[in-house]
Simulated scan of single mutants.
Amino acid sequence: MTARFPLPATVDIPQVIVVTGVMAAGKSTVSQLLAERFTRGVHLRGDEFRRMVVSGRVDMTPHGDPEAERQLALRHTIAAHAAHLYAEAGFTVVVQDLFVGRSLEPFLAQIPYRPLSLVMLAPEVSVVMRRESERVKKGYGDNWSIRDFDHRVRTETPHIGLWLDSSKHTPEQTVDEVLARLEQARID
């Protein structure tokens, strides 16, 4: 059993924690474990809103597509509103999604609830490559190169909140570190 650090007194208050990072960075696993650490926790998976579109969905590509970008913005708006409503109802909400480049700050601006934190999972490219090869769900392929996507995240995304190299951590250790450094993740 993994030793868990005690939660700081300010952690178990309703709040919104946004977890992002490249595909295969561990967002789903870490977000689920993080939400489970709270007395009243919600894991809000932004990708669920994408999957709800059963016809007419246009997925993002590196080349940009206005309709894909419009649908991504809609998905982010829905996630922001849902996060705010859950937090107002007394839950700590862990929002997990891809927020790359200029999409991050408009998303955060749509969440009026405070405290608001951001965690960017930023493992080394070699670790992402290994994780991608081991998982069933594939995020990369013909459209995305792991190196190019990682470079885009690191160079085009605002460096706010907590950027965490989780390369040498288990998911549980990553959650422990997020909780220990939650004040550094605050963006409000």
Rank of each mutant, 00 (worst) to 15 (best):
S31P: 02
D59A: 09
P123R: 02
F99Q: 05
R114E: 01
E156S: 05
M120L: 08
T39K: 12
L116R: 04
T170N: 09
F5C: 15
D148R: 09
A79Y: 07
F91Y: 12
L72C: 10
A25P: 00
E124L: 14
K27Y: 00
W163Y: 08
V178N: 03
T155D: 03
F91R: 04
D188F: 00
A87V: 02
Q71S: 05
D59P: 11
L33Y: 03
T29P: 04
Q71R: 08
W144G: 05
V128N: 01
I17S: 13
G139M: 04
R102H: 14
A35W: 11
H169W: 11
A35H: 11
K137P: 06
L7K: 13
L179W: 05
A122T: 06
T29V: 08
V94S: 03
D59W: 11
E156Y: 01
T10E: 15
T170D: 07
D165G: 06
E105N: 12
L179R: 06
A89H: 04
Q15N: 12
R186A: 08
A25I: 01
Q96L: 10
P106V: 04
A83S: 02
V58M: 09
K138V: 07
Q184F: 13
R51E: 14
L7P: 11
T92G: 01
L108T: 03
F149D: 09
K137D: 13
L74W: 14
D97C: 02
S166N: 15
S167F: 08
T10S: 13
A73P: 05
V11W: 09
Q110V: 04
V58S: 07
Q173L: 11
H63Y: 12
I13M: 14
R181T: 12
A87G: 03
L118K: 01
L44K: 04
R114I: 00
E177F: 08
T77I: 07
L44H: 05
H76I: 06
V153M: 12
T29Q: 03
I13D: 15
S28R: 03
Q15Y: 08
W163H: 05
D142N: 11
D165V: 07
T61N: 02
E36C: 15
V53R: 04
V175G: 03
K168F: 15
Y113M: 05
V128P: 01
H43V: 06
I146E: 02
D150P: 05
D150W: 14
R181G: 06
I111S: 01
P123T: 00
I78W: 08
G90H: 05
V54G: 11
V22M: 02
G64T: 06
H84W: 07
V119W: 00
R102G: 15
V19Y: 01
T39M: 10
S31C: 06
V119C: 00
G46H: 08
A109Y: 12
L162R: 01
V125G: 02
A3S: 14
I187Y: 00
A180M: 10
A87D: 03
L121R: 00
D97I: 01
L162P: 01
D59N: 13
R135L: 07
D148W: 05
H151K: 11
H159K: 10
D188Y: 00
Y86W: 09
S31M: 05
E183K: 07
E183P: 06
I111G: 02
